[in-house]
Design a protein around this nucleic acid. Structure first.
Length: 157
DNA sequence: GCCAACGTTGGC
DNA sequence: GCCAACGTTGGC
């Protein structure tokens, strides 16, 4: 039974276009510094899970493509990198605190804007849309996943 | 740049 | 273990 996720990334970090240009079309999902999001990667994600690739903190936030989980969780190298904004002095290689998975592009889609998602009845249950929700990784139900696919395949409004 | 909603920190 | 202060997220 496949599972589904929505994963936020700032396009400045790795946009869907940049992901498509990468040799393996894969990005290590580093920089997660929230325990709930980390635990999703560590405890629940499986290779092959579906991912809604979501652009955040940008002029047009929304789902920009479909991707998949391409690895199990492993220690996030940026936590040990003094020069990284994600360096964590409280973490150690012996007891790494932060993990990441790899994510591989399936296909770019047309942008499904956040505002459009908010207006779609079938998506009202999404964790993303909960007031004040800031989680960078959220579970998506099969029903929500199908509804997003339907919107992406529907004629443009 | 504003600000609401959260998460984390640290004193007690 | 409580909770106030502070920092962060992220849409607008």
């Amino acid at each position: 039974m496949p599972q589904y996720w929505l994963m936020k990334i700032e396009p400045a970090e790795c946009s869907i276009d940049e992901l498509a240009r990468r040799p393996a079309q894969t990005v290590p999902w580093t920089g997660v510094r929230n325990y709930q999001a980390r635990n999703f990667m560590r405890d629940a994600m499986q290779v092959g899970d579906g991912v809604l690739y979501y652009h955040s903190s940008c002029p047009e936030p929304g789902v920009a493509g479909l991707a998949e989980v391409a690895s199990t969780a492993y220690p996030d190298a940026t936590q040990f990198d003094l020069g990284s904004p994600w360096f964590d002095p409280k973490s150690s290689p012996e007891q790494p605190r932060w993990l990441n998975v790899d994510v591989r592009l399936q296909r770019r889609t047309r942008l499904l804007p956040l505002a459009r998602m908010r207006s779609e009845p079938a998506l009202q249950s999404m964790v993303l849309l909960r007031p004040g929700s800031r989680l960078s990784i959220t579970p998506v139900t099969p029903q929500e996943w199908q509804a997003v696919l339907a919107l992406l395949d529907a004629p443009a409004a």
